[in-house]
């Protein structure tokens, strides 16, 4: 498989990622230096098993759509996750497990991974990670996967929703647009076939 990968081109989900920061929503850190991954009490990200991306955007997208409706129990991303824990980030990092993304259940930690690489912004792109917060970056609490963007539509696939259900009853849900305005994006890397 790796032989084929070498013939591919690595891209970032959004080219020119941070350029859109001028119109940043309140979520984005303004003048602050990029946060250090694992800061704020979060554990250090688990090193990804794939240091370079090995999957295309279409491959990840297909897997995201195929998992719609699934719950945590017995899911491939459940790992050792207890039913009482949040798992939206666990789901996203599982989707991107072969795209040089740390495997974590901490949404802020995942954001900080992208931030440290300068791969965050406010522009929705196919294959991006969408982060929801209560305002400042410190309050990021939920992550999802941007399946597709088109004129006026930002289709996402998100785990551990709706948030009013217990975590063992939440599921992977598809949205046609983000459900809140306090959002920011991280841009994973993909290979191009």
């Amino acid at each position: 498989m790796s032989g084929g990968i070498r013939r591919r081109t690595v891209i970032v989900a959004a080219l020119g990622t941070v350029a859109a920061g001028a119109t940043a929503v309140a979520l984005l850190p303004r003048d602050a230096a990029p946060a250090v991954p694992g800061a704020g009490g979060a554990s250090s990200p688990t090193p990804t098993s794939a240091p370079i991306p090995t999957r295309t955007l279409d491959e990840v997208r297909t897997e995201a759509l195929g998992s719609a409706g699934m719950r945590l129990a017995a899911s491939p991303w459940s790992a050792d996750a207890a039913a009482t824990t949040t798992w939206s980030t666990l789901y996203v990092s599982w989707l991107l497990r072969e795209n040089a993304v740390p495997q974590t259940r901490d949404a802020r930690e995942l954001y900080e991974h992208f931030s440290a690489l300068g791969q965050v912004g406010t522009e929705p792109r196919d294959g991006a990670v969408i982060f929801y917060s209560d305002g400042p970056v410190e309050s990021i609490f939920h992550a999802g996967y941007v399946e597709r963007t088109s004129a006026g539509a930002i289709a996402t696939v998100e785990g551990d929703v709706p948030d009013f259900l217990p975590h063992d009853q939440t599921f992977v849900r598809r949205y046609g647009q983000p459900w809140d305005a306090n959002i920011v994006y991280g841009y994973p890397e993909y290979v191009v076939a």
Binding site: R173, R174, Y175, G176, W179
Partner: peptide, 8 residues
Amino acid sequence: LASDPLDE
């Protein structure tokens, strides 16, 4: 609404 989730 367009903000309602899909396929439910």
